[in-house]
Each structure stands twice: as C-alpha cells, then as structure tokens.
Amino acid sequence: MKRIVLISLALLLLSLLFAWGLLFYPMDSRLPSGASLEAPSGEHWLGTDNLGIDIFAQVSSGFFHSLSIGLATALTAFLIGGALGVAAGYAGGRTDLLVEFLINLFLSVPQLPIMIVAGAFFGQSSLNIICIIAAFSWAPIAKQVRARTMSLRKSGYLVLAKSYGGRLWYLFKTHMSRDILPLLAISALAVTGRAIVQESSLAFLGLSDPLAKSWGLMIARCTAFKGIYFTNFWTWWLLPPVLALVLSTLLLRLLTRALESYWLEKE
C-alpha cells in the first residue's frame, strides 16, 4: 500500500511539472521562441531545437499527448476486451469459439508490420493511432477475463444464483464485477504504459500524428539532424524526451506491479 502511494505521488509530481510547463511556462510548444539550438538557460530551461522551438514546452505537451493516447487506448481496449471476454466466458459455445479465434488471431499476427501498414492507410491522426493500438491491446485482456469468467461460472455460487433466476446484469454487478473489475483495471493500466511506448515507436517511424509534439517525433527529428553526433546538441534535444518517456513508462509499470501484488495479497 505504501508503495502504491509513493509511486502515485511520483506520477502526480511528474504530471504537475509538465502541467506547469503546458499552462504557465511562457514558451510556446509550436512556434519558434528563440534562436536555433540554444543551450539550456534561464529563459529556455531545456534549450531550443533546430527550429528554435522551446524543448521544455514540447516535452510538456508531449507528456499530455502520450498520456491521453495511453489512457484512451486503455479505455478502448478495456471495453472491447472486457465485453468480449465476459461474453465468451459466460455464454460459451459458438460465441466462445469465435472470440477465442479472434483472440488468437490478434495475438499471433506480427503487430508492428500491421501497425505500420494500418498507420499509413488510415492516416496519421491521433484518433486512428488510438484505434490501431487498441486493436492490438484488447486480446490479452479478453483472454484473462474469459478465463476468469469461466472459472466463476463453474464455481458454485454463480450457478446457485442463476438457478434462483438471477438476471445477467444483476449477476454481473453483484458477483462478477467484484472479481473481474479490479483485474480489468490493472490490465488497462498496463495497456496505458504499453500504448505510450507503441505510440512513440510509431511516431519515431513517422507514422503517428505529425502535428502532435509527441516524444517519438521529437526523437526522430533529433536523430535525423545532420551532424548531431559531433555536436553536443543532443544532450538537451534528445535526452529530455528520452528520459521523460523512460520515466513515465517505468512509473506506470511500477504502479501496475504494485497494484497487482496488492490485489493478490488481498485475495
């Protein structure tokens, strides 16, 4: 419990820092506000990139871009995975077979190539990226939920409740939600972290929303800059988005793990 609080606090601090950068920091994240490639200073905390745009402002807006993509993806995956998993586990029979096939299909395709093609096909808006990543994130959730629902269905008290004529929604609300929802929530949190990573990978390949100041895009721009290796520009241009990305994924991962073990202990 203590660990959960600690990690959440760290995450909160990080968000506050970036929220400040987004809302009160005087530099714009889209327009040039200084000379090209200025080193960090009081005015530009983390310096500027090749177009003279402030890096701290970009990293800050990148945080919320990444986080919102991660959360939206997780929510979508949570809904699809949860619904399909419960349906399959509860209904069994043909529904189960179909869902199982879909789960296996999405687990077995090589994800990145499909994402590359789909990203290029559907266009590079944030919404499409969310859909694409969610499409490849729901399957593990559904698998877990399906197994859990099945075992619940077979367990005594659900059968008993059913024989008393309990309606599906009621059954779900009272019995299953208590067992399944926490599991779903933790999986969704894990998806958030993974979605952030995947979005940045796609952005690095130039397949994410080109207008968003995403971290992946910043990294791609920096590494493509000619002569970057023999200047020290990368220390303030490359490292901030890289560290921000590492830090936020790791914190999310730690939080997921702490919650997982907390829940297991409680059981």
Binding site: L37, N50, K226, G227
Partner: peptide, 22 residues
Amino acid sequence: VSDELLAFENGEIDIASMPADL
C-alpha cells in the same frame, strides 16, 4: 554513411550538403 557531415569531416566522402546552421 551514417552521418553525411561526420563522413565529410572524416574524409570518407568528397562532397556533402551543408546544413544551414553550420
């Protein structure tokens, strides 16, 4: 070459495009 400018500096290539900032 991995980096055109670096390669030009090292004499690995004989002509390169010049970045505006340099």
